[in-house]
Design a protein around this nucleic acid. Structure first.
Lengths: 157, 157
DNA sequence: TGCTTATATCGTAACGATTACTAATTATTC
DNA sequence: GAATAATTAGTAATCGTTACGATATAAGCA
């Protein structure tokens, strides 16, 4: 099934409409699924197909998508919120590798935490609905090509 | 060894001085190790022992402590940066449980990710220097006492 | 169709956390 | 003890985000 149509249905199911502006934003997210776009980036990209769109609408729409669990708002410590499409089941979050040298942000699409979540439930009486796992470090390939000193104090691990 | 003295040495080792202001801030962090204080909270607490201290100094000192890997700047999606003392070896980060109902933030002091980090190294050629693992969900005890609908779209998983 | 009401958008002002900057203060060096 | 460097205080500026009033679009109904 068409993903836009799918999302449109989810909007309808919650009495929201997929307006042209909202659809343009959703399409940008789908077309850039690999990236973790900031509001400003989404704004720039949407302007290509919808030049008249206002920044506040981007903020509002992303918040709405977040409420519908279609996207996930995240914070990688660079001072701006970033948004990530969730999996279709809206449950599992993927993990991230963040390279200190080249700055690349890679996704691990698997869910490696099933076991640990069971352990949390067992040992802490805590049932997990969502999680976040980021690894920071360096790719071996980056390591070779000289590594500038890491004075980096950005938030988020 | 006294922890303040220990930190003082680390300052000295990097040609920084542990001024009275900085020491007052460090003591607040040590005295509230369980919490994840925001800048504003640290500011309030330090004012008790050092009423004249300026807010900018808190910002600068926390950044410095971060650079020295004594604290870790984190972001739990409530709009302010929070700071967490690192373990003495300055390597392992603990994990977090965040309850959707009562809002409590609990720490898991173990490092459960040793295995997964090995896997990342193996499968992705990526050597981890740091990580972050947060679980969001509900305590069983909170679950019972009625759970308000979760419309929460805060950043960070 | 025309009127009414609700929903969504636009542009911008307001807000709040953080950073940048200047002057004043304290420590260090010669 | 004067000159230099490091640190702090206080506040102005910045920047991401949110709030607000006015306008526009869609839905419901006679």
């Amino acid at each position: 099934m068409n993903r836009v149509a799918n999302i449109s249905q989810q909007f309808a199911a919650h009495n929201y409409k997929l307006t042209p502006q909202r659809e343009a934003i959703v399409r940008v997210l789908l077309d850039n699924e690999k990236d973790h776009l900031s509001v400003e980036e989404v704004y720039m990209l949407v302007k290509r197909s919808y030049p008249h769109l206002g920044l506040a609408t981007v903020y509002r729409t992303l918040e709405l998508l977040c409420e519908l669990h279609i996207v996930q708002k995240m914070n990688f410590g660079d001072g701006v919120a970033r948004y990530d499409l969730r999996d279709d089941d809206h449950v599992h979050m993927h993990h991230h590798l963040i390279c200190n040298v080249c700055g690349k942000l890679e996704e691990i699409k698997d869910d490696w935490l099933v076991e640990l979540e069971a352990r949390v439930a067992r040992e802490y009486g805590f049932s997990v609905t969502d999680h976040r796992l980021d690894f920071k470090g360096t790719y071996n390939s980056c390591q070779k090509n000289g590594c500038k000193g890491d004075k980096d104090c950005r938030a988020v691990s």
